[in-house]
Design a protein around this nucleic acid. Sequence first.
DNA 1: AAACTAACATACAGCCTTGTTTGTATGTTG
DNA 2: CAACATACAAACAAGGCTGTATGTTAGTTT
Lengths: 208, 208
Amino acid sequence: MRRTKAEAKETRQQILLAAEKVFYEKGVAHASMEDVARAAGVTRGAIYWHFANRADLVLELYNSLPMPQEDLIARELEAENADVFGVLERVGREWLELLATDEHRQRILSILLRCDTSGEFAAISERQNDLDDEHMQALEAAFAKAEGQGKLDRAWTPRSAASMLRWVIKGLCSEWLLFGRRFDIASEGKDALHRLFATYASHAPSAR
Amino acid sequence: MRRTKAEAKETRQQILLAAEKVFYEKGVAHASMEDVARAAGVTRGAIYWHFANRADLVLELYNSLPMPQEDLIARELEAENADVFGVLERVGREWLELLATDEHRQRILSILLRCDTSGEFAAISERQNDLDDEHMQALEAAFAKAEGQGKLDRAWTPRSAASMLRWVIKGLCSEWLLFGRRFDIASEGKDALHRLFATYASHAPSAR
DNA sequence: AAACTAACATACAGCCTTGTTTGTATGTTG
DNA sequence: CAACATACAAACAAGGCTGTATGTTAGTTT
């Protein structure tokens, strides 16, 4: 039964795909490894060969998602008078578009959102939290830069602007994913982002 | 062992409190009814006497939360030239303050957020969704009224304003609850709401 | 006060799962 | 080509949990 390395990798991929499907449909908690195995056309043995346990499987599912290159974005923001709002709005829009078109991402993030983060999956949610923290710091720094450029309306602080942006995007995504995707997240999100960034920009003639 | 009705009600309450604690700590999926029973100082028999099953128990947990009187709010908004933004901002602030001070609400909503909404708990999440829909409609109507009063900045439509408000509040609450309550939701939320409603208000001199 | 019933505790049946272990056929390597 | 490692399948052992059924005691009703 020994397969070639390439075939094994294929099997692993099949298992990941099956897990994505089964966990998405039945929920991580209620689906058994046997369910996943059947959907993948293998036995549980194969799953336990490739993954330590269910938590590991979910983790690898999460790892299979390519994440946007943050260092690249950071470099875009480095320039002395970079167009902070332009970059951030574009990045946000791109993220929403990516989510809107990538069904794997949709299912996996849904799984993560709905899965019980306490207990066995605590590690995963901790990693997400850490990532979130980093994002928040980067965002705040970016808005601080915009403030330094005199582009941030005085009604906002870097922190409040960053928080608001994150809350909107998070609320948008979770509602869309958990709520049956009953609206066009790409267009509505783009719209919302545009309005939001418009309010960030200096309105009142600056008292200079 | 037959207890008086009052004592039985007490028992039921104890079970609900225990469920809140155990489900919050171990997660709905991973906690057994036995765990809940032990925490409540009863046996599983008592639980199954008062509740049909785990899903019913969670549902009753949800039902135990007093919800803000929506008809009352609606009446406040009825008046011809009601201060829509003032009312909405106050309601939002009150909701956040309620959440910030009521630890039961915090735990129960955390449970609901983290619990696997597919399968057995589908009914609960559907009810939440229905409620959300109603809220959304009410919100949109309120903003439409503000628009009719010429108070809504032209940069916004009733729908976009309502969506944004909901996303912000949802993102705020879920982040706070799922993320370890690492910030002061009452003050930061109040702050965010204030900024948000400031952007809703007509800025530019209306072209009338 | 007898009959009834509410409010549980206890016992039971049974399934489903998980993790592990063993078996094995097939690549892979020296 | 022999020896070994790999990639699984299949069998195993063990346990936990759910739901129900039954038992029991103490209120409640008439």
